[in-house]
């Protein structure tokens, strides 16, 4: 094998190994790319708006939107968990306070985290929450029960074809979920 070829081969192998390492990095880069893409397009029903203070907004009385509140317990979590008013009607811009009832039916203190999911996905970015039990982990003593509030309104800019929104909360046991680095998945307006 002559010198020139050896040099060429060496350069090529460095480029190709570099490309392979780069693609390994790209595999991980897909995680933030996916998150940002979904945040910008708002297609996966995850990234609702978080308002620090409830602002006064013009109420669009001409439209009526039905919101269904759904509850799930992850992996047979032994809690009672349901919306107090599973179906409500409101006008875009109208501020509503609703609540979920939760009860720790075990004999141990438990910490849970509620993870929301909104259908249709595109409606998520028009859902503004000022207050939600899903913002933080909730710690309940054994047998403790509580009504947990949500304060929200729907942006009047919501597309005209959306008449019905489903908001689902799934309750996760934070001990079972190996992770503790729970973060707010919302986006500050």
């Amino acid at each position: 094998m002559n010198e020139a070829l050896q040099r060429k081969n060496k350069r090529l192998i460095i480029i190709l190994i570099g490309a392979a390492i780069g693609m390994f990095g790209f595999g991980f880069a897909l995680v933030p790319i996916y998150r940002v893409f979904c945040q910008v397009t708002g297609i996966n029903g995850k990234y609702y708006q978080v308002d620090d203070i409830q602002q006064t907004i013009a109420i669009d009385k001409s439209r009526d939107i039905t919101v269904t509140f759904v509850s799930n317990n992850n992996e047979l979590l032994p809690w009672e968990f349901h919306a107090n008013n599973p179906v409500i009607h409101l006008h875009p811009g109208e501020v509503k306070r609703v609540s979920y009832y939760a009860k720790n039916k075990t004999i141990n203190e438990m910490t849970v985290q509620a993870i929301p999911s909104i259908v249709p996905g595109i409606a998520a970015k028009y859902l503004h929450k000022t207050e939600c039990f899903c913002f933080q982990q909730q710690t309940f003593a054994a047998g403790e029960e509580m009504n947990m509030p949500i304060l929200f309104h729907i942006d009047p800019d919501i597309p005209k074809n959306i008449h019905h929104i489903t908001v689902a909360y799934t309750l996760f046991d934070t001990k079972m979920a190996v992770a503790t680095n729970i973060q707010k998945v919302g986006r500050v307006h």
């Binding site: 897909l30 995680v31 993870i115 046991d173 979920a177 992770a179 680095n181 729970i182």
Partner: peptide, 16 residues
């Protein structure tokens, strides 16, 4: 190792 790439409870995404 306790990360949450795919775990919704930890801020991850199962669909990812």
């Amino acid at each position: 190792f306790g990360t949450s790439f795919f775990n919704a409870a930890g801020g991850g995404d199962p669909l990812l």
